[in-house]
Simulated assay, not measured.
Amino acid sequence: MEYGEYGSIERELYIDAPPEVVFDVLTDPEHIRDWWSAENDFEATPGRPGSLTWTNKDSGVSKSVPFTVVASDPPRTLSFRWTHEEGENAGPGNSLLATFELAPAGEGTTLRFRESGYRERGWEAAVLEAHYNDHRQGWDFYLPRMAAAAERAAGAR
């Protein structure tokens, strides 16, 4: 792959749950613990900082990632900036921008996901490729888990 190919990660998936349920699963701390396996300080309020914390079950080592909500328009849009530099506030130039767009699709929801900002970080090519591939694999794992959690939540209503 060329350096220029690491601009963004984009995914689209259908979720058999209405947008209101999907948005709730994306933003409710209990649901986030379920699908993202992260302890979190999350509130879908623009400008509000928060954190996601993952703990390695084998080593017990925790990694906390700061983020800032950029936009929240329930049940249509959620975006946040996050950085993997502890103690740093996530802003343009030092973070990645994750955007979730939800659109009604029959009885369910079409989720359009995009994460951008890789090239803007200024990483050398090998670091850029490693971060991009790590996130690509992560989203390919976690987005289907989020969809399954939303479908379970919709069935429980």
Rank of each mutant, 00 (worst) to 15 (best):
L52R: 04
G60D: 07
S59I: 08
P49Q: 14
E39T: 10
V25L: 06
E43L: 13
V22H: 10
V25T: 05
S59R: 13
E43W: 04
N40K: 06
T55C: 02
D28G: 06
D24P: 00
W36D: 10
T53H: 05
L52S: 06
E39M: 09
W54R: 09
S51T: 12
V61P: 00
P46Y: 13
H31R: 12
P49E: 15
G60K: 07
S64R: 15
W35Y: 15
D41A: 07
S51A: 08
P66Y: 02
S37E: 15
I32M: 05
D34S: 15
E30Q: 15
R33P: 02
W36F: 15
E43S: 14
E30T: 11
W36R: 12
V61G: 01
E39L: 07
G47F: 07
T55A: 02
P29I: 01
E20P: 02
L52F: 15
T55Y: 00
F23E: 08
P46W: 12
E30D: 15
T45H: 06
S51C: 04
F42M: 02
T55R: 09
T45Y: 04
I32A: 01
G50I: 01
T27K: 02
S37A: 15
S37T: 14
S51P: 01
K63G: 03
S37V: 09
A44W: 05
V25K: 05
V22T: 11
D34W: 07
G47Q: 13
F23D: 03
W35A: 07
S62T: 08
A44S: 14
D58K: 14
T53Q: 11
S59W: 08
G47Y: 10
A44R: 13
H31N: 13
D24T: 14
E30N: 14
S51G: 03
A44C: 13
R48F: 00
S62L: 03
N56E: 09
P49G: 11
K57W: 00
V21Q: 08
L26Q: 06
E20Q: 12
R33Y: 01
E20R: 12
V61W: 02
A44F: 07
G60M: 04
T53C: 07
S64L: 06
P49H: 10
F23C: 04
S51L: 04
W54L: 08
D28F: 00
S59E: 13
F23R: 09
G50V: 01
P66L: 02
E39Q: 15
T55S: 02
G60L: 04
W54M: 10
A38T: 09
E39W: 05
L52V: 03
L26M: 08
K57T: 02
F23A: 04
P49R: 13
R48E: 07
N40I: 01
S64K: 14
I32S: 02
